[in-house]
Design a protein around this nucleic acid. Structure first.
Lengths: 209, 209
DNA sequence: ATTATAAACGACAAGGATGTCGTTTATCAA
DNA sequence: TTGATAAACGACATCCTTGTCGTTTATAAT
Protein backbone atom coordinates (compact mmCIF):
# COMPACT_ATOMS: atom_id res chain seq x y z
CA UNK A 1 0.00 0.00 0.00
CA UNK A 2 2.53 2.54 1.14
CA UNK A 3 4.81 3.62 -1.71
CA UNK A 4 7.83 1.51 -0.96
CA UNK A 5 10.96 2.32 -2.89
CA UNK A 6 11.82 -0.32 -5.39
CA UNK A 7 15.54 0.19 -5.03
CA UNK A 8 17.49 1.00 -1.90
CA UNK A 9 18.43 4.53 -0.90
CA UNK A 10 22.03 3.51 -1.32
CA UNK A 11 21.39 2.53 -4.90
CA UNK A 12 19.80 5.87 -5.68
CA UNK A 13 22.54 7.78 -3.94
CA UNK A 14 25.17 5.86 -5.83
CA UNK A 15 23.52 6.64 -9.13
CA UNK A 16 23.22 10.30 -8.18
CA UNK A 17 26.93 10.39 -7.49
CA UNK A 18 27.71 8.68 -10.76
CA UNK A 19 25.76 11.28 -12.67
CA UNK A 20 27.40 14.06 -10.68
CA UNK A 21 30.85 12.65 -11.42
CA UNK A 22 30.03 12.52 -15.10
CA UNK A 23 28.72 16.08 -15.04
CA UNK A 24 31.87 17.25 -13.29
CA UNK A 25 34.03 15.76 -16.03
CA UNK A 26 31.93 17.27 -18.78
CA UNK A 27 31.94 20.68 -17.09
CA UNK A 28 35.71 20.62 -16.81
CA UNK A 29 36.11 19.55 -20.39
CA UNK A 30 33.60 21.83 -22.07
CA UNK A 31 33.07 24.62 -19.57
CA UNK A 32 29.87 25.24 -17.69
CA UNK A 33 27.94 27.22 -20.21
CA UNK A 34 28.78 25.06 -23.19
CA UNK A 35 27.55 21.98 -21.38
CA UNK A 36 24.01 20.91 -22.19
CA UNK A 37 21.84 18.34 -20.50
CA UNK A 38 22.17 16.31 -23.67
CA UNK A 39 25.95 16.28 -23.27
CA UNK A 40 25.69 14.90 -19.77
CA UNK A 41 23.02 12.40 -20.77
CA UNK A 42 25.27 11.08 -23.51
CA UNK A 43 28.36 10.98 -21.33
CA UNK A 44 26.50 9.21 -18.54
CA UNK A 45 25.29 6.37 -20.72
CA UNK A 46 21.81 6.82 -19.28
CA UNK A 47 18.76 8.07 -21.07
CA UNK A 48 17.34 11.55 -20.99
CA UNK A 49 14.53 10.51 -18.69
CA UNK A 50 16.93 8.63 -16.47
CA UNK A 51 19.07 11.66 -15.79
CA UNK A 52 16.08 13.95 -15.35
CA UNK A 53 14.88 11.60 -12.61
CA UNK A 54 17.79 12.88 -10.53
CA UNK A 55 18.52 16.38 -11.76
CA UNK A 56 16.43 18.83 -13.68
CA UNK A 57 19.18 21.18 -14.85
CA UNK A 58 22.91 21.60 -15.23
CA UNK A 59 22.61 24.43 -12.74
CA UNK A 60 21.37 22.07 -10.06
CA UNK A 61 24.24 19.70 -10.75
CA UNK A 62 26.77 22.49 -10.63
CA UNK A 63 25.58 23.72 -7.27
CA UNK A 64 25.70 20.30 -5.70
CA UNK A 65 29.22 19.68 -6.96
CA UNK A 66 30.28 23.10 -5.77
CA UNK A 67 28.79 22.79 -2.32
CA UNK A 68 30.63 19.54 -1.83
CA UNK A 69 33.81 21.25 -3.02
CA UNK A 70 33.37 24.14 -0.62
CA UNK A 71 33.24 21.83 2.36
CA UNK A 72 36.47 20.28 1.19
CA UNK A 73 38.05 23.70 0.86
CA UNK A 74 37.14 24.70 4.39
CA UNK A 75 38.63 21.53 5.79
CA UNK A 76 41.73 21.98 3.68
CA UNK A 77 42.32 25.48 5.02
CA UNK A 78 41.76 24.34 8.60
CA UNK A 79 44.13 21.46 8.12
CA UNK A 80 46.83 23.76 6.81
CA UNK A 81 46.36 26.11 9.75
CA UNK A 82 46.45 23.22 12.17
CA UNK A 83 49.65 21.85 10.71
CA UNK A 84 51.53 25.14 10.47
CA UNK A 85 53.80 26.49 13.18
CA UNK A 86 52.89 30.14 12.66
CA UNK A 87 50.05 32.02 10.98
CA UNK A 88 52.42 33.32 8.34
CA UNK A 89 53.66 29.81 7.69
CA UNK A 90 50.06 28.76 7.14
CA UNK A 91 49.68 31.41 4.47
CA UNK A 92 52.94 30.37 2.86
CA UNK A 93 51.90 26.73 2.89
CA UNK A 94 48.55 27.58 1.42
CA UNK A 95 50.13 29.61 -1.36
CA UNK A 96 52.67 26.88 -2.04
CA UNK A 97 49.85 24.44 -2.65
CA UNK A 98 47.99 26.88 -4.85
CA UNK A 99 51.16 27.41 -6.84
CA UNK A 100 51.71 23.70 -7.27
CA UNK A 101 48.12 23.25 -8.41
CA UNK A 102 48.44 26.00 -10.98
CA UNK A 103 51.70 24.75 -12.41
CA UNK A 104 50.51 21.27 -13.12
CA UNK A 105 48.77 20.78 -16.47
CA UNK A 106 45.04 20.44 -16.91
CA UNK A 107 42.45 22.65 -15.36
CA UNK A 108 40.22 21.52 -12.57
CA UNK A 109 36.83 22.45 -11.36
CA UNK A 110 38.05 25.78 -10.02
CA UNK A 111 37.92 27.38 -13.40
CA UNK A 112 34.42 26.03 -13.95
CA UNK A 113 33.32 27.73 -10.76
CA UNK A 114 34.91 30.91 -11.95
CA UNK A 115 33.11 30.67 -15.28
CA UNK A 116 29.82 30.05 -13.56
CA UNK A 117 30.46 33.06 -11.37
CA UNK A 118 31.11 35.33 -14.32
CA UNK A 119 28.15 34.03 -16.30
CA UNK A 120 25.90 34.45 -13.31
CA UNK A 121 26.52 38.13 -12.81
CA UNK A 122 23.97 38.61 -15.58
CA UNK A 123 21.38 36.21 -14.22
CA UNK A 124 19.20 37.68 -11.55
CA UNK A 125 17.91 34.28 -10.47
CA UNK A 126 21.37 33.26 -9.42
CA UNK A 127 22.24 36.30 -7.37
CA UNK A 128 21.28 34.89 -4.00
CA UNK A 129 23.32 31.76 -4.56
CA UNK A 130 26.20 33.86 -5.77
CA UNK A 131 26.11 36.08 -2.75
CA UNK A 132 25.93 33.09 -0.44
CA UNK A 133 28.93 31.44 -2.07
CA UNK A 134 30.82 34.71 -1.95
CA UNK A 135 30.25 34.84 1.78
CA UNK A 136 31.45 31.28 2.16
CA UNK A 137 34.62 31.96 0.21
CA UNK A 138 35.34 35.09 2.22
CA UNK A 139 34.71 33.30 5.48
CA UNK A 140 37.07 30.48 4.59
CA UNK A 141 39.89 32.75 3.46
CA UNK A 142 39.38 34.89 6.52
CA UNK A 143 40.37 31.97 8.70
CA UNK A 144 43.94 32.36 7.49
CA UNK A 145 44.07 35.96 8.59
CA UNK A 146 42.07 35.81 11.80
CA UNK A 147 44.32 32.98 12.83
CA UNK A 148 47.26 35.37 12.94
CA UNK A 149 45.28 38.21 14.47
CA UNK A 150 44.41 36.15 17.53
CA UNK A 151 48.04 35.45 18.27
CA UNK A 152 49.05 39.02 17.54
CA UNK A 153 51.24 37.83 14.69
CA UNK A 154 49.23 39.92 12.19
CA UNK A 155 48.30 43.56 12.72
CA UNK A 156 46.34 44.29 9.54
CA UNK A 157 46.08 47.88 8.36
CA UNK A 158 43.06 47.06 6.18
CA UNK A 159 39.78 45.28 6.93
CA UNK A 160 40.08 41.51 6.78
CA UNK A 161 37.51 41.39 4.01
CA UNK A 162 39.48 43.76 1.82
CA UNK A 163 42.60 41.65 2.23
CA UNK A 164 40.69 38.49 1.45
CA UNK A 165 39.29 39.99 -1.70
CA UNK A 166 42.75 40.95 -2.84
CA UNK A 167 43.86 37.35 -2.38
CA UNK A 168 40.80 36.08 -4.23
CA UNK A 169 41.48 38.44 -7.11
CA UNK A 170 45.01 37.20 -7.62
CA UNK A 171 43.82 33.65 -7.21
CA UNK A 172 41.10 33.98 -9.83
CA UNK A 173 43.32 35.91 -12.16
CA UNK A 174 45.98 33.22 -12.05
CA UNK A 175 43.36 30.58 -12.70
CA UNK A 176 42.11 32.43 -15.73
CA UNK A 177 45.57 33.17 -17.10
CA UNK A 178 46.52 29.55 -16.65
CA UNK A 179 43.52 28.46 -18.62
CA UNK A 180 44.31 30.74 -21.52
CA UNK A 181 48.05 30.86 -21.65
CA UNK A 182 48.94 27.47 -20.28
CA UNK A 183 47.83 25.81 -23.44
CA UNK A 184 50.28 27.82 -25.45
CA UNK A 185 52.96 29.32 -23.31
CA UNK A 186 53.20 27.82 -19.85
CA UNK A 187 55.98 29.96 -18.56
CA UNK A 188 54.35 33.24 -19.40
CA UNK A 189 51.75 32.99 -16.67
CA UNK A 190 54.40 33.93 -14.10
CA UNK A 191 52.71 31.98 -11.36
CA UNK A 192 55.70 32.12 -9.05
CA UNK A 193 56.21 35.83 -9.51
CA UNK A 194 52.62 36.71 -8.87
CA UNK A 195 52.45 34.59 -5.75
CA UNK A 196 55.63 36.24 -4.60
CA UNK A 197 53.98 39.58 -5.33
CA UNK A 198 50.97 38.59 -3.30
CA UNK A 199 53.29 37.83 -0.38
CA UNK A 200 54.89 41.28 -0.67
CA UNK A 201 51.47 42.80 -0.34
CA UNK A 202 50.41 40.53 2.51
CA UNK A 203 53.53 41.11 4.56
CA UNK A 204 52.92 44.81 4.40
CA UNK A 205 49.21 44.86 4.92
CA UNK A 206 49.40 42.38 7.78
CA UNK A 207 52.50 44.00 9.25
CA UNK A 208 54.27 40.69 9.54
CA UNK A 209 57.66 40.55 11.34
CA UNK B 1 27.91 49.17 -66.37
CA UNK B 2 30.32 49.16 -63.46
CA UNK B 3 28.63 48.36 -60.13
CA UNK B 4 28.36 51.84 -58.71
CA UNK B 5 27.45 52.13 -55.05
CA UNK B 6 23.98 53.44 -54.60
CA UNK B 7 24.81 55.23 -51.40
CA UNK B 8 28.00 56.97 -50.47
CA UNK B 9 30.75 55.36 -48.46
CA UNK B 10 30.04 57.91 -45.77
CA UNK B 11 26.44 56.76 -45.56
CA UNK B 12 27.47 53.13 -45.16
CA UNK B 13 30.10 53.98 -42.60
CA UNK B 14 27.60 55.99 -40.62
CA UNK B 15 25.13 53.14 -40.59
CA UNK B 16 27.86 50.74 -39.54
CA UNK B 17 28.67 52.96 -36.62
CA UNK B 18 25.03 53.24 -35.65
CA UNK B 19 24.70 49.49 -35.54
CA UNK B 20 27.94 49.20 -33.60
CA UNK B 21 26.74 51.75 -31.08
CA UNK B 22 23.51 49.86 -30.63
CA UNK B 23 25.38 46.60 -30.21
CA UNK B 24 27.63 48.18 -27.61
CA UNK B 25 24.64 49.26 -25.55
CA UNK B 26 23.00 45.86 -25.77
CA UNK B 27 26.27 44.12 -24.84
CA UNK B 28 26.64 46.31 -21.78
CA UNK B 29 23.07 45.77 -20.74
CA UNK B 30 22.75 42.05 -21.34
CA UNK B 31 26.31 40.79 -21.36
CA UNK B 32 28.09 39.45 -24.40
CA UNK B 33 26.92 35.88 -24.37
CA UNK B 34 23.30 36.62 -23.63
CA UNK B 35 23.12 38.97 -26.58
CA UNK B 36 21.69 37.50 -29.77
CA UNK B 37 21.63 38.92 -33.24
CA UNK B 38 17.89 39.22 -32.81
CA UNK B 39 18.42 41.45 -29.77
CA UNK B 40 20.63 43.80 -31.72
CA UNK B 41 18.32 43.76 -34.72
CA UNK B 42 15.40 44.77 -32.51
CA UNK B 43 17.36 47.42 -30.66
CA UNK B 44 18.68 48.89 -33.89
CA UNK B 45 15.28 49.39 -35.43
CA UNK B 46 16.57 47.82 -38.62
CA UNK B 47 15.57 44.50 -40.07
CA UNK B 48 17.40 41.23 -39.78
CA UNK B 49 18.65 41.43 -43.33
CA UNK B 50 19.64 45.03 -42.86
CA UNK B 51 21.95 44.28 -39.98
CA UNK B 52 23.38 41.18 -41.66
CA UNK B 53 24.36 43.39 -44.56
CA UNK B 54 26.98 44.93 -42.26
CA UNK B 55 27.82 42.27 -39.72
CA UNK B 56 27.40 38.53 -39.79
CA UNK B 57 27.80 37.80 -36.07
CA UNK B 58 27.88 39.37 -32.64
CA UNK B 59 31.47 38.21 -32.46
CA UNK B 60 32.41 40.39 -35.39
CA UNK B 61 30.71 43.37 -33.80
CA UNK B 62 32.43 42.77 -30.49
CA UNK B 63 35.86 42.67 -32.05
CA UNK B 64 35.37 45.89 -33.93
CA UNK B 65 34.15 47.68 -30.83
CA UNK B 66 37.04 46.28 -28.83
CA UNK B 67 39.71 47.17 -31.33
CA UNK B 68 38.48 50.75 -31.36
CA UNK B 69 38.54 50.71 -27.56
CA UNK B 70 42.07 49.42 -27.42
CA UNK B 71 43.33 52.32 -29.47
CA UNK B 72 41.68 54.65 -27.04
CA UNK B 73 43.30 52.88 -24.14
CA UNK B 74 46.77 53.19 -25.60
CA UNK B 75 46.31 56.89 -26.14
CA UNK B 76 44.93 57.31 -22.66
CA UNK B 77 47.95 55.65 -21.08
CA UNK B 78 50.32 57.71 -23.19
CA UNK B 79 48.50 60.88 -22.27
CA UNK B 80 48.76 60.08 -18.57
CA UNK B 81 52.46 59.38 -18.91
CA UNK B 82 52.97 62.58 -20.85
CA UNK B 83 51.16 64.67 -18.27
CA UNK B 84 52.80 63.19 -15.20
CA UNK B 85 55.93 64.58 -13.58
CA UNK B 86 57.38 61.21 -12.58
CA UNK B 87 56.84 57.62 -13.63
CA UNK B 88 55.42 56.81 -10.22
CA UNK B 89 53.04 59.74 -10.46
CA UNK B 90 51.85 58.35 -13.79
CA UNK B 91 50.98 55.07 -12.12
CA UNK B 92 49.22 56.86 -9.31
CA UNK B 93 47.26 58.97 -11.75
CA UNK B 94 46.32 55.94 -13.75
CA UNK B 95 45.12 54.11 -10.65
CA UNK B 96 43.21 57.15 -9.46
CA UNK B 97 41.25 57.17 -12.70
CA UNK B 98 40.62 53.44 -12.53
CA UNK B 99 39.36 53.89 -8.99
CA UNK B 100 37.04 56.71 -9.97
CA UNK B 101 35.69 54.62 -12.82
CA UNK B 102 34.98 51.69 -10.55
CA UNK B 103 33.27 53.75 -7.90
CA UNK B 104 30.76 55.33 -10.19
CA UNK B 105 27.60 53.34 -10.81
CA UNK B 106 26.86 51.37 -13.94
CA UNK B 107 29.22 49.05 -15.68
CA UNK B 108 30.90 49.87 -18.93
CA UNK B 109 32.28 47.91 -21.80
CA UNK B 110 35.24 46.73 -19.77
CA UNK B 111 33.24 44.05 -18.08
CA UNK B 112 31.89 42.91 -21.43
CA UNK B 113 35.42 42.47 -22.66
CA UNK B 114 36.20 40.49 -19.56
CA UNK B 115 33.18 38.27 -20.11
CA UNK B 116 34.14 37.69 -23.71
CA UNK B 117 37.62 36.80 -22.58
CA UNK B 118 36.37 34.22 -20.10
CA UNK B 119 33.87 32.74 -22.53
CA UNK B 120 36.50 32.50 -25.20
CA UNK B 121 38.91 30.35 -23.25
CA UNK B 122 36.71 27.45 -24.29
CA UNK B 123 36.46 28.36 -27.95
CA UNK B 124 39.39 27.28 -30.00
CA UNK B 125 38.44 29.52 -32.90
CA UNK B 126 38.94 32.59 -30.75
CA UNK B 127 42.34 31.73 -29.36
CA UNK B 128 44.38 33.67 -31.86
CA UNK B 129 42.34 36.80 -31.33
CA UNK B 130 42.58 36.32 -27.59
CA UNK B 131 46.32 35.96 -27.68
CA UNK B 132 46.66 39.02 -29.87
CA UNK B 133 44.55 41.14 -27.55
CA UNK B 134 46.49 39.84 -24.59
CA UNK B 135 49.68 41.03 -26.20
CA UNK B 136 48.16 44.43 -26.84
CA UNK B 137 47.02 44.79 -23.25
CA UNK B 138 50.42 43.76 -21.92
CA UNK B 139 52.19 46.13 -24.26
CA UNK B 140 50.03 49.05 -23.21
CA UNK B 141 50.42 48.43 -19.50
CA UNK B 142 54.13 47.91 -19.97
CA UNK B 143 54.44 51.50 -21.08
CA UNK B 144 53.79 52.61 -17.52
CA UNK B 145 56.66 50.54 -16.21
CA UNK B 146 59.19 50.96 -18.97
CA UNK B 147 58.66 54.66 -18.62
CA UNK B 148 60.17 54.54 -15.15
CA UNK B 149 62.88 52.06 -16.08
CA UNK B 150 64.31 54.38 -18.67
CA UNK B 151 64.76 57.17 -16.16
CA UNK B 152 66.11 54.81 -13.51
CA UNK B 153 63.15 55.61 -11.26
CA UNK B 154 62.06 51.96 -11.28
CA UNK B 155 64.38 49.03 -10.68
CA UNK B 156 62.00 46.09 -11.00
CA UNK B 157 62.91 42.85 -9.30
CA UNK B 158 60.48 40.89 -11.49
CA UNK B 159 60.00 40.75 -15.28
CA UNK B 160 57.90 43.58 -16.60
CA UNK B 161 55.38 41.12 -17.93
CA UNK B 162 54.88 39.50 -14.54
CA UNK B 163 54.24 42.88 -12.96
CA UNK B 164 51.81 43.83 -15.69
CA UNK B 165 49.88 40.63 -15.22
CA UNK B 166 49.59 41.28 -11.53
CA UNK B 167 48.11 44.69 -12.29
CA UNK B 168 45.72 43.19 -14.82
CA UNK B 169 44.58 40.59 -12.32
CA UNK B 170 43.66 43.16 -9.71
CA UNK B 171 42.05 45.28 -12.37
CA UNK B 172 39.88 42.47 -13.71
CA UNK B 173 39.05 41.24 -10.24
CA UNK B 174 37.82 44.65 -9.19
CA UNK B 175 35.74 44.91 -12.32
CA UNK B 176 34.12 41.59 -11.62
CA UNK B 177 33.52 42.29 -7.96
CA UNK B 178 32.01 45.62 -8.86
CA UNK B 179 29.60 43.98 -11.23
CA UNK B 180 28.43 41.46 -8.67
CA UNK B 181 28.55 43.31 -5.41
CA UNK B 182 27.93 46.84 -6.54
CA UNK B 183 24.31 46.08 -7.18
CA UNK B 184 23.79 45.09 -3.60
CA UNK B 185 26.57 46.37 -1.39
CA UNK B 186 28.71 49.06 -2.94
CA UNK B 187 31.06 49.54 -0.07
CA UNK B 188 32.02 45.92 0.24
CA UNK B 189 34.07 45.91 -2.94
CA UNK B 190 36.86 47.76 -1.11
CA UNK B 191 38.06 49.45 -4.25
CA UNK B 192 40.22 51.96 -2.40
CA UNK B 193 41.84 49.33 -0.22
CA UNK B 194 42.69 47.04 -3.08
CA UNK B 195 44.18 49.84 -5.13
CA UNK B 196 46.20 50.84 -2.11
CA UNK B 197 47.27 47.21 -1.83
CA UNK B 198 48.32 47.20 -5.45
CA UNK B 199 50.48 50.23 -4.75
CA UNK B 200 52.16 48.48 -1.83
CA UNK B 201 53.10 45.67 -4.16
CA UNK B 202 54.22 47.98 -6.94
CA UNK B 203 56.44 50.10 -4.72
CA UNK B 204 58.25 47.02 -3.56
CA UNK B 205 58.52 45.23 -6.87
CA UNK B 206 59.63 48.38 -8.69
CA UNK B 207 61.88 49.49 -5.82
CA UNK B 208 60.46 52.97 -5.88
CA UNK B 209 62.06 55.63 -3.70
C1' DA C 1 6.16 -17.25 -10.33
C1' DT C 2 3.37 -13.25 -9.84
C1' DT C 3 2.48 -8.54 -9.29
C1' DA C 4 2.76 -3.78 -7.86
C1' DT C 5 5.53 -0.06 -8.36
C1' DA C 6 9.48 2.69 -9.28
C1' DA C 7 13.41 3.40 -12.45
C1' DA C 8 14.79 4.01 -16.92
C1' DC C 9 13.75 4.79 -21.64
C1' DG C 10 13.41 7.67 -25.84
C1' DA C 11 10.30 10.03 -29.04
C1' DC C 12 8.43 14.34 -29.46
C1' DA C 13 6.48 19.04 -29.02
C1' DA C 14 7.80 23.62 -28.04
C1' DG C 15 10.83 27.47 -27.97
C1' DG C 16 14.47 30.16 -29.65
C1' DA C 17 18.46 31.44 -32.42
C1' DT C 18 20.75 31.57 -36.92
C1' DG C 19 21.58 32.56 -41.69
C1' DT C 20 19.39 32.90 -46.21
C1' DC C 21 16.92 34.53 -49.99
C1' DG C 22 13.22 36.23 -52.82
C1' DT C 23 10.86 40.64 -52.55
C1' DT C 24 10.30 45.49 -51.83
C1' DT C 25 12.06 50.06 -51.33
C1' DA C 26 15.27 53.82 -51.91
C1' DT C 27 18.95 56.03 -54.41
C1' DC C 28 21.47 58.01 -58.05
C1' DA C 29 22.57 58.56 -62.98
C1' DA C 30 20.85 59.64 -67.28
C1' DT D 1 10.64 60.95 -64.97
C1' DT D 2 12.74 56.58 -65.73
C1' DG D 3 15.62 52.64 -65.04
C1' DA D 4 19.39 50.09 -63.02
C1' DT D 5 21.21 48.74 -58.88
C1' DA D 6 22.08 48.38 -54.08
C1' DA D 7 20.05 48.62 -49.43
C1' DA D 8 16.66 47.02 -46.49
C1' DC D 9 13.06 43.93 -45.46
C1' DG D 10 11.01 39.91 -43.13
C1' DA D 11 9.36 35.21 -43.72
C1' DC D 12 11.18 30.87 -43.34
C1' DA D 13 13.82 26.56 -43.14
C1' DT D 14 17.22 24.67 -40.12
C1' DC D 15 19.37 23.45 -36.13
C1' DC D 16 19.75 22.79 -31.29
C1' DT D 17 18.14 22.42 -26.65
C1' DT D 18 14.83 21.60 -23.17
C1' DG D 19 11.30 19.31 -20.49
C1' DT D 20 7.58 15.99 -20.69
C1' DC D 21 5.13 11.84 -20.78
C1' DG D 22 3.42 7.41 -22.26
C1' DT D 23 5.86 3.06 -22.52
C1' DT D 24 9.01 -0.53 -21.21
C1' DT D 25 12.01 -2.75 -17.95
C1' DA D 26 13.74 -4.09 -13.46
C1' DT D 27 13.10 -4.85 -8.63
C1' DA D 28 11.59 -6.83 -4.42
C1' DA D 29 7.74 -8.28 -1.69
C1' DT D 30 4.29 -11.81 -1.65
Amino acid sequence: MSPLPKVSQEYKEKRRQEILDTARKVFIQKGFDQTTMTDIVEASGLSRGGVYQYFSSTDEMFRQITDRNDEGFENWIKKIIGESKTAWAAIENYLAEVEAGLLEPGVGFGIVQFEYFVFSTRKEERSSYLLKRGETAIRNFSLLIENGMKTGEFKPIQPTEAIVMFIININDGLLLQSLTLNKYEHDRVYVKEQIQGLKMYLKQVLQVE
